[in-house]
Nucleic acid binder design. Structure first.
Lengths: 197, 197, 197, 197
DNA sequence: AATGAATGAGAGTTCATTCAT
DNA sequence: GATGAATGAACTCTCATTCAT
């Protein structure tokens, strides 16, 4: 018996694979938007709807609410890590990227507020890890004589403090406040921008 | 439309109207505890249960969720105002009282984070007013040459920043971080204590 | 804010999507029964229970209380419209169908009472529209010289009057009263029967 | 020992008696208003509040919800009985008074709708009795040859029919509809007015 | 007698999660 | 793999009724 070659007309398996990845991305994008609008407590059904998929798909990709949040934050954190990994990266530059995410992503602010593990936080354990990755990225570029270098937990606190200052309805306001906050800390910040190679 | 009376047998004692004031106080105290444990989004029923009263009592005293939060925060704010009204008050002293409340009251932190009116915040309009009362109390004692005096929104931002730094499971940790945060801002803080004459 | 999943053990069978249409029909049928027994103000939970579904299902199919009532009434109204659309329809015949519904469906009576928009009515805006559809169906067959033709709002008032007369615990009594009422108005009514081709 | 004459300054006992009657009247009046605004299902607490008394007073005077409704209706019914008892009363005149109450008192309409004992009615057993008193008052003046005289339950049905026609937001509209309804029944009605000697 | 606080059941509504199709 | 209906517990808010004062 001869093996049938895959029919060109219908390759649902492959389509399935591609659709899966597409769905996952759509879900993360939708979650990012929804979080920005309604906060981290927004209904998961809203995210699925915005992504244009059924709720079951959400659960296929993410076991629970925390996993969705993690996925959204992961992208923020990864950009910071990539910025820190650039050959010519310096603290000011990485802080600029960090600040960009702070002023764009409500979820990201929540992450940094929650990192110290308040019991209140809806965002729990995974926040710890993500927060540490952010901190590591920054610490690599912290010069010995830097203001924050000599202070216990200085870096982490500084980031938390700035995130506390990032409030306001408009992006412009949030950005202005963030920059003022860094200035109050006496820390120099580079251009506020995403990290896109 | 049809309302059943509470089951006839074992109706808990109606303690009469003397209990009213006691109940209100119990509700505020319970809310403070619950907020510390579960955040400002905690169910009102949990607050009533902790206070040892029926849910109706909660609604008699507070028309809605916001009113409960306001009542809890009111005490925090009032102590700061009183501290600021002392004859020998100075900025450091008032900040000490502020810091005491920041490290004790989760709800109070939430207040200061929410004041800038994130869309996400469950805490809405009344937060604005309470936040402004805090700011006014502080500004009265802000010397002209002070670090924060020359910066637009300096005082408000500094308080928000410190509140962002106040995280951690133990009071000691939160207090240590708060003091470090003030130090990073180059602002002197007095003894961290409540205001009780 | 925190939502508990339904207790894991003994989750009743999810019968899949085939059940959807069946559930909707069951809800409408249950609502019709409940309305007959307890009036239009009956608790929605009672309707869901009678239909053998969870409350969530009811809310999936009907966004609010009014939608449930509308769905129940819709069938009554539609039958009258169909009867009026018959090639050999005449006023007496359509009134017979109308009367059949009046004596069978408490909700339908409520509809016609509420159409004039009492402030008290739980039944609001949609009643207006349904009531008008009934009126239109009848008016098509109102001969020029008819008793009710010369009177302002004559048709609408006559229907409201008969619906006011339709009281009593048994169907027989309600039917007898309805027919007597029409007779008092000097209006001829055909066979009291549903419209089923 | 001499009997102390009642001090003019404080006669609480007498005041108590008078207050009781005043309170009862205030409650009935308040209930009438509230019923007109919100229907028979309005909260009892609203009635007490409108009357300016505590809820306990309401329960002192009326054992339950039905008793309040009865008291309100009692006044309507009594005026009709008085009108019927006038030496020169005739059917048209009494129907005029009846119609006046129909167009003024939502509760009174409800009474007449409910008299046939729908299960749906919030107004239950006592309605039967009140309704019969109305009917008796009318029947005394029903001439032998009258349209309604030869019809079984003719009088009761006619009243129910007119009450079904009395809808609409304004008193004027309700009154016009009521009169048209009587006209459709071929029954003459006198001046629409309350019975005040 | 009056007051009005307290009680708690229950109604309405929302949502996390499962699962037949 | 995807879909989206079903489930039911939890939450908010209302109100009839009781009862200490």
């Amino acid at each position: 018996m001869k093996q049938q070659p895959p029919s060109d007309e219908r390759r649902p398996a492959n389509e399935g694979r591609k659709a899966a990845a597409r769905n996952r991305a759509a879900l993360v994008a939708a979650a990012r938007e929804i979080y920005a609008e309604d906060g981290l407590g927004a209904p998961l059904s809203a995210i699925a709807r915005r992504a244009g998929v059924g709720q079951g798909v959400l659960y296929r990709h993410f076991p629970d609410r925390a996993a969705v949040a993690t996925a959204v934050l992961e992208e923020n954190v990864r950009q910071i890590e990539r910025a820190a990994a650039e050959p010519d990266a310096d603290l000011a530059g990485v802080l600029g990227v960090l600040t960009w995410h702070l002023t764009r992503s409500t979820a990201f602010i929540g992450l940094l507020h929650a990192d110290g593990a308040d019991s209140r936080a809806a965002v729990p354990a995974y926040a710890q890890e993500l927060s540490e990755r952010v901190e590591r990225s920054l610490r690599r570029h912290l010069p010995d004589g830097h203001r924050l270098a000599g202070v216990d937990e200085g870096l982490r606190l500084a980031v938390a403090m700035v995130s506390g200052a990032v409030t306001g309805p408009t992006r412009e306001q949030r950005e202005r406040r963030a920059l003022t906050a860094w200035a109050l800390l006496g820390v120099e910040v580079g251009a506020v921008r995403p990290h896109e190679e």
